[in-house]
């Protein structure tokens, strides 16, 4: 992929303000890994007044559930899952300071509006590139919900994890732009 701009977590508001749809980025630092079941629990914690097991301020959540690692590996395949399934859980997380999400596919209109309002970006990763992304992960730690198996909440450290800005805080959408340009 074309070399991208290096960004680090936690994401500052000023970095988010500079990102535009179509920008290639290389993300380094801490990511939280969560998908359907972990989101349900996380949001239940928040709505019922319990403190969440992760610090969401400036955080990026990666929508993913890896294959189990072989002995000596950090994680197995670790590519993105479809983001739109997590849209119903987005607002309470944004309210706590979540500033970015990584996944694949397009987001709902409601999620896009929320990202604009709370100044958060969505990064598209390449679906099906599980081994490629696995190579970008330098450590992994179970944070919560271990009983969910592959859906548990993890904290991972990544180096130069490539992604593309798919929704910026100005309402831009990569997928809409793509179809407008390429539709015959």
């Amino acid at each position: 992929m074309r070399a991208g701009r290096r960004i680090e977590t936690p994401l500052g508001e000023e970095v988010v303000a500079e990102l535009r749809v179509g920008d290639r980025v290389l993300i380094s630092g801490r990511l939280y890994v969560a998908r359907d079941a972990a989101h349900k629990r996380l949001v239940e914690d928040l709505l019922e007044g319990r403190s969440p097991p992760i610090d969401l301020e400036g955080a990026i959540i990666y929508y993913m559930a890896p294959t189990p690692p072989k002995p000596g590996q950090i994680l197995g395949a670790a590519g993105p899952t479809t983001s739109i399934r997590m849209d119903p859980y987005l607002e309470p997380l944004l309210r706590r300071g979540l500033r970015g999400t990584i996944g694949k596919g397009y987001r709902s209109g409601r999620a896009r509006e929320l990202m604009r309002r709370y100044r958060a970006v969505y990064f598209a990763a390449i679906g099906g590139a599980g081994a490629y992304y696995s190579n970008k992960i330098k450590s992994s730690r179970l944070v919560a919900y271990g009983d969910l198996g592959p859906e548990a909440l993890l904290e991972i450290r990544v180096e130069d994890f490539p992604a593309i800005v798919a929704n910026d805080i100005y309402g831009g959408d990569l997928f809409e732009q793509a179809v407008r340009r390429w539709r015959k």
Binding site: M1, G22, G76, A77, G79, G130, A131, Y132, S134, I164
Partner: peptide, 26 residues
């Protein structure tokens, strides 16, 4: 951008073979 995605997928298949990791986590 489509070609960039496909290049990553080609590289992904190679890495999967080398490291014995499934190409996709699903």
């Amino acid at each position: 951008l489509g070609r960039e995605a496909l290049s990553i997928l080609l590289e992904n298949a190679r890495i999967a073979g080398e490291r014995g990791i499934p190409v996709c986590q699903d």
